[in-house]
Nucleic acid binder design. Sequence first.
DNA 1: AGCATATCCTATCTATCAAGTAGGATTCAA
DNA 2: TTGAATCCTACTTGATAGATAGGATATGCT
Lengths: 151, 151
Amino acid sequence: MQVSARGEYAVRIALTLAAEHPRTISASTLASAQGLPRKFAEVILGDLRRAHLVASARGVEGGYRLARGPERISVGEVLRAVDGPLAEVRGRRPEETSYEGAAVNLPRLWVAARAAVRSVLDEVSLEQAASGEFPVRVAELTDEEGAWAPR
Amino acid sequence: MQVSARGEYAVRIALTLAAEHPRTISASTLASAQGLPRKFAEVILGDLRRAHLVASARGVEGGYRLARGPERISVGEVLRAVDGPLAEVRGRRPEETSYEGAAVNLPRLWVAARAAVRSVLDEVSLEQAASGEFPVRVAELTDEEGAWAPR
DNA sequence: AGCATATCCTATCTATCAAGTAGGATTCAA
DNA sequence: TTGAATCCTACTTGATAGATAGGATATGCT
């Protein structure tokens, strides 16, 4: 699960918008709040707008705000908007894969892996991520032995 | 969770070796069994060897075999050997991330997402993946409503 | 010894993409 | 009308994925 710079930035921007919801905030304010390059932030906000996750207003007093309440937008949606599907195998979606021989059962494994990712990223709203009050299932994952250790 | 061509190929090769364990199989046989470019398969097998997941023998009658029993190697280990860490955020490990403002809780979310991925890929052995007899927890994920549908 | 068949090593190629920058056209409130 | 903002198109730069090429090295068999 590789999260790109775009993806990380998008989530940080979305969280900032969530915390200020429903106020309208400019790209430069958002960028400096999270220490991101302004122009790049603009590009990302364009993606989020096209995905209907944020609404924008031009002109003085313009800026961006979440298109829905922060409890109704998941982190997964934000990531998908800028990075595409959450899980892909060699550029294909898990259920589109197909193999022969000893690998015939692999598609099921890819689908399971994607389901696991979704069970976290699609189940956590911006509101929860901003407040740190994660769903129990998710919180349990971070409490597990070894969850914070590299492998 | 993007699985690269290398990653996918590595798992398919590993599964083929698992099915034939403990026989020694040549790179060309493995490659044609799974329809992969032979030279590329050699590179990947080199990675797997350096990670001590396969053992190799040179010369006529040479080839590759799993370094351990297929029930003692997880799919996650194979993927790590060729693609590096299972989860990274902007090139960093989840527990190494750190943010300010509305994103302070984000590292916990990244760690949870990684734990979710691990709970599938590190809990499924090559033997299980080859036979299709996945652990209950994993099998349940593929049975869930919508698990096979794109988003 | 010699040969066939493997692994193994180094180097190279090409296309694509990520990340970020540049400049300016457009919109809008005061 | 002016200042501040979004929005649009284009570009640069570097790294990486996904191979391929050629040959050096090892090994079993006859």
